[in-house]
Amino acid sequence: MTHGTGGPLVLLHTSPVHVPVFDALRDRHHPGLGLRHLVHEGLLDRARAEGPEAVADEVGGVLARAVAEGAGAVLCTCSTLGAVAEARAEELGVPVLRVDRPMAAAAMRSGRPVVIVAALPSTVRPTLDLLREESADTDGTTFVGSLLVPEAWERFEAGDRDGYLDAVAAAVDGIAPAEGAEAPVVVLAQASMADAAARVRTPLTVLSSPGTGLAAAAEAAGYRPE
């Protein structure tokens, strides 16, 4: 793995709700890791309306400024923008990671069917593409389905975090394998969904991205526990 230059790990967010989540994960699992947060809500708004490629240059500009200011590595916490962020790594000269790649890799390694749960339509295609990339190490036959929960995003935008997480958890609890079919792995496609995993009652495996994504980025940035 390519490692960072020793500067802080910069996190690119499209919502401020992610800042305390990742700070808490850092304090719990990576004490001493230098984090810097950049919040650009407008990037997601445009990507939803025009597609992720429409904001690729703007994302590249944000990341280039972060590197110029000393970033040792960058983690994009937005699943919709993850691919366009990752694509800038070579030109920037530092690791650029998407938060959901380790989660996707774990899902595909399971060898079981995968169900993507997303609150935004713009998240589904990038997540499907990512899972297909990660299936390169498997036989490529894993079934992947998706479940969209638009009512959850309405609550998120209204600032009702509990309502958002409860709606996601209820959707996950409603997933049931067909009779005789193998139980699927559930992928929570958006980082903001992570806490819904603690609210589900289902026995299914439910994967979220913040913890494993931050761990991978910390390693890429050259973090070493004190």
Rank of each mutant, 00 (worst) to 15 (best):
E86S: 12
L43V: 06
V94N: 05
L38P: 00
G70M: 05
A54L: 11
L75P: 09
V59P: 04
D57L: 10
L35I: 06
A56C: 03
A66V: 05
R36N: 03
L81R: 11
A73E: 06
A104P: 06
D100G: 13
G72F: 03
R101I: 07
A71P: 07
P95Y: 10
G34I: 00
E58A: 14
R109L: 13
V99G: 01
D45G: 14
P52F: 04
R109D: 14
A68H: 04
D57A: 15
V94W: 04
M108K: 01
G82E: 08
A89K: 02
G60C: 02
C78W: 06
A47P: 12
E91W: 01
G93Q: 10
V39F: 00
E86M: 15
P102C: 11
E69V: 00
V67K: 03
L63W: 08
R88Q: 15
R36F: 05
R101V: 11
G70Q: 05
P52N: 07
A49N: 04
V94Y: 08
A54I: 09
G93T: 06
V62F: 08
P52S: 09
G34H: 12
V67G: 03
A89C: 04
G61K: 12
V74R: 08
A105H: 14
A71H: 05
G70I: 02
H37F: 03
E69C: 00
L75H: 10
H37I: 03
C78E: 11
A87G: 03
S110Y: 03
P95A: 09
L63D: 04
L75W: 13
L44C: 01
V84H: 01
A73W: 03
V62T: 06
G93I: 11
R98A: 14
P102L: 10
L81A: 09
A49Q: 12
R101K: 10
A85P: 08
C78K: 12
A49K: 09
V67A: 06
G70K: 02
A56G: 02
V67R: 09
E58Y: 01
R65W: 00
A83P: 00
V99I: 15
E69S: 04
V84P: 01
